[in-house]
Design a protein around this nucleic acid. Sequence first.
DNA 1: AGCTTTGCTATCAAATATGTAGCAAAAATT
DNA 2: AATTTTTGCTACATATTTGATAGCAAAGCT
Lengths: 110, 110
Amino acid sequence: MATPKPGKPVRGSKTGQPIMALFDLLGRSWTMGVIWHLYKGPSTFRKLQEYCESISPTTLNKRLKELTESHLIERSIDGYMLTQQGRELFELLSPLGKWAKTWANNYTSK
Amino acid sequence: MATPKPGKPVRGSKTGQPIMALFDLLGRSWTMGVIWHLYKGPSTFRKLQEYCESISPTTLNKRLKELTESHLIERSIDGYMLTQQGRELFELLSPLGKWAKTWANNYTSK
DNA sequence: AGCTTTGCTATCAAATATGTAGCAAAAATT
DNA sequence: AATTTTTGCTACATATTTGATAGCAAAGCT
C-alpha cells in the first residue's frame, strides 16, 4: 500500500485531510510501536526486530520506508532515528502511556 | 482477531504492556477515525459509515465491537457514543489534529 | 582470508479488509 | 393497521496486508 500523504486520498478521507492521513499512517501495524522504541535512541534494523518482539522483517521494512517517506525517521550512522518532527509526534503520543495504565486498571476491575 | 487487552499478549508485547495493548487497539484500520467522529456526538451505524467514507460494514462492525469491549464506546438511545474514558482518550489524541496540519505543510514544501 | 553481523529480499501461507447484496427488526409515514 | 423507509447488521467472495521462514550480499571484525 502506498504511504499515506496529506492531500491525497487516504483511509478516512478522499481529500486527504491531514489528520486522516496521519491516522492512516499511524494506524498500521507496529507503526506506533516503532516510534515509541525509537524515541529512546537510534536503533538498528535487527534491534528494532527484537524490541518489537514478533515483527516480521517484511513488515518492519515497509514501516521504516513509510516513516522515512513521511519525514518522521531518517538514517544516521547509528541506525534509524526519529527526526525532529518524529520527536514532536512522539511527545504528543507520550501521554497515552500514562492513560493506558489507568485504562488497564479499569479494565481488570470490570 | 481478538480485542487487545492489557495483560494479555498483544502486538508489540507478549506480556501485554498497557501502552502496547493500546497501540494494538488504536493501530487498526479506522479505529482512530471512529473515535474522532464520535467525539462530535453520538452517531448511528449508517452515519458512521458515511463519515468514514469508504469503511465497509464488516470492518465497522468489528471496530465497534472492539471499542465496546474496551469500554471506549457504548450504545445509547442516539446510537454509539464515547464513554467518559473514550472522551479522555480523544482529548489526548486531539493535539494530533493541529500537529498534522503543520506536518502536511512541511510535507508539501519538501 | 574467514567468520559474524546487519539489512534486507523472496516466497508462500495466514489473517484482515473490502465490496456488494440483502435481510430482519424498528421506526416513521400514510 | 398496512406500507414504506431506515437501521444495524450478516454472508460471501475477492483483494490486500501481514506474518514466518529462509537466506543472501555487503560491511565489519579478527
